[in-house]
Simulated scan of single mutants.
Amino acid sequence: MMLELKAGATSLERLEGAIARMQQKHGFVRVAADAPQFPAGLAALLLTDDPQRNLEVLDACVILPEALNGLGADVARLVAGPEAAAALMQRFAVARAPAVVFLRDGDYLGSLNGIRDWQEYRDEVACLAAGPARPRPIPIPVRDAGNSGACA
C-alpha cells in the first residue's frame, strides 16, 4: 500500500473559500480592484488580507455576516479580496486587515479594525451603521493602529 501525501490548502486558498461562502450563503458582493462600486444606502465593506499575516481575517469572514444580521436585509454586504483591499485600505486610512468600513450613500461612517468579543463587535457594528457620516480619513499608508472610527 502506498500513501499519497498532498499539501494542504494555502492560506490564500482558504481565504478564497471563505469569500465564496460569504457570497453564496450571505449575499456578499466582491468589489473590483480597479473600480469598486459602492451602492446607495448602507454598505459594510470587509477588507481582507492574506490570513498568513493575520489569522483574524478568516474569523472576520465568519463573524461579520452574523453581526450584520442584526441590521436587517437593507445593508449591502461587500468584500474585498487581498488584490483589492490594499488600495481600499489606503483610501480609507485603515491600518490593518481585517477591517469593516461602513458607508451610507457612499459617505464614510467609520471603520472597525480586528476582531473583538462578540457583544462588543456587534455593538460597534450597530453603532457605526446608525451613526452620522464623518469626514473620510486622510489616505495614508499605515501598518498598525486601533479602531479608526470608534463609537464612544
Rank of each mutant, 00 (worst) to 15 (best):
A129R: 09
A18G: 10
I63E: 08
R53M: 02
Q37I: 13
L78E: 06
W118Q: 14
F102G: 03
D50G: 02
L15Q: 12
G114F: 11
F102K: 09
A129G: 04
V101N: 03
R14W: 09
A67C: 03
K6V: 11
L46E: 02
A133T: 04
T10Y: 05
V57Q: 03
T48K: 02
N113I: 12
N54A: 10
A87W: 04
P82S: 12
R143F: 15
D50Q: 02
P36F: 12
F92P: 00
P36L: 13
F28T: 10
F92H: 05
I19D: 07
D74N: 15
E16V: 02
Q24G: 11
L71C: 06
P98I: 10
C127W: 10
N54F: 06
S148E: 11
A99K: 06
L64Q: 06
G27P: 02
V57F: 03
C127D: 06
R122F: 00
L78N: 11
Q37D: 11
M89P: 02
E56W: 13
R134F: 08
C61Y: 02
S111E: 03
G27V: 08
M1G: 11
I115C: 03
A80N: 10
H26A: 14
G110R: 10
C61E: 02
A93P: 02
A130P: 04
V29Y: 00
F28K: 03
L15E: 08
A43W: 14
G81F: 11
R77Q: 08
A93N: 13
A133M: 06
A43V: 12
D59P: 00
